[in-house]
Amino acid sequence: MDVIAWALVPVVGMLVAALTAVLIAVVALKGTASRERAAVLRAVADVVRAVYGRRTRLSDPAPYGDAPEG
């Protein structure tokens, strides 16, 4: 029984993390115009990375290369 628990806990944890990311994206995209979806998805990706402890681009001065010229 312990072997099954050791095998299922990581799988269930990854499944919960994936479902959480999908739900965050669905809620964030609901009601957005098509021209705004790319920016919303970038922000959602930053939030998901921050929540799950991965390095984010939030600290970069121009994270997506959209800094003003000049």
Rank of each mutant, 00 (worst) to 15 (best):
V11D: 13
R54Y: 11
G13C: 05
G53M: 00
G13V: 07
D66S: 06
A39I: 08
V3D: 11
V51R: 06
E36W: 13
V16C: 15
T32L: 07
A25Q: 07
V11P: 01
V47K: 02
G65S: 10
D60A: 05
V47C: 06
R57Y: 08
D2E: 14
V51Y: 11
A5T: 04
K30N: 09
L29S: 15
V9H: 05
A17M: 09
R57M: 14
V3Y: 07
A5E: 07
E36V: 01
L15C: 13
R55Y: 04
A21M: 03
G65A: 07
S34I: 05
L19Y: 08
I24L: 15
V12A: 14
R37I: 04
V3N: 13
K30Y: 12
V12W: 15
A33K: 12
V40W: 04
R37W: 02
E69G: 03
V26N: 05
Y52Q: 05
L15D: 12
R49I: 02
I24N: 00
V48N: 06
R54F: 13
K30R: 15
G31T: 12
D60I: 01
A45I: 12
V40P: 01
A7D: 11
E69H: 09
G70N: 09
D60N: 09
A45R: 10
V16M: 14
E36A: 14
G53L: 04
T32F: 01
P61A: 09
A45T: 12
G70I: 01
L8A: 14
V26E: 08
D60T: 04
L41M: 14
P61L: 01
R54H: 05
L58T: 05
V12P: 00
Y52K: 00
A43R: 15
A45P: 00
V12S: 09
Y52T: 00
T32P: 07
V51T: 09
